[in-house]
Amino acid sequence: MSEHITVNIDDQEIKARPGDKLLWAALENNIYIPHLCAIKEEKRPNSSCRLCFVEIEGVSRPVTACSRQVQEGMVVKTRSPQVDRLVKTAFELLLSDHNLNCRECPANRNCALQKIAKERGIKLKHNRLKPFNRTFELDDSPDEFALDRSRCVLCGQCVWADRVGAEAWIFGFAKRGIDRVLTTFNNLPLAELSCNECTLCVDACPVGALYYKKD
């Protein structure tokens, strides 16, 4: 792994290790690419949030940076009209069923969605797409934290932390399409499962879905 390869991202020459994914190579060099579902250690990324699109010279369509390996001499643009449009639509879709009451959200000012909105100049409002409100029961059964699914973006960070970090196998996803939801077995409250409240999942949550209770 001594060999370094050079990649050009937004007219900036950066060094990366062969086999690295483009997204992480860029982030390590302070070049921001929006992302929610990407997990650095994951061998096969989900690429499900559709936010990390970039354009690579010689590739006809935008590609997800989290799944693309760096190559010597690659020329990458993180912004282009096509990329911006894809990212904006994906972002608006995420917002369409998101509880946008930021003021009461524990992750306010420390939220991945707010960061992406700021970086890409997208408003945190229901604009083009009608809001799709889903009602969820708040799961505040654990002593230290709570889960509000109305703020969940289904990124899977907590599932990864829960399985790889804590080896607890509490979280997973259920149903499909617009009904897709972060769940526990049989949708049981967390306190009724073998959750030992290691709170790795809370730390992993990029938004305010999993949050520490006050006091």
Binding site: R163, W169, I170, F171, G172, F173, A174, K175, R176, T183, T184, F185, N186, N187
Partner: peptide, 25 residues
């Protein structure tokens, strides 16, 4: 039933939550 899913999870060594995810999918 939830009990059956739990027992199958044990038998096949798959997390129970994944079986729940599959059966709701």
């Amino acid at each position: 039933p939830a009990l059956a899913m739990e027992k199958i999870a044990e038998g096949v060594s798959v997390p129970a939550v994944d079986i729940y995810g599959l059966t709701t999918f």
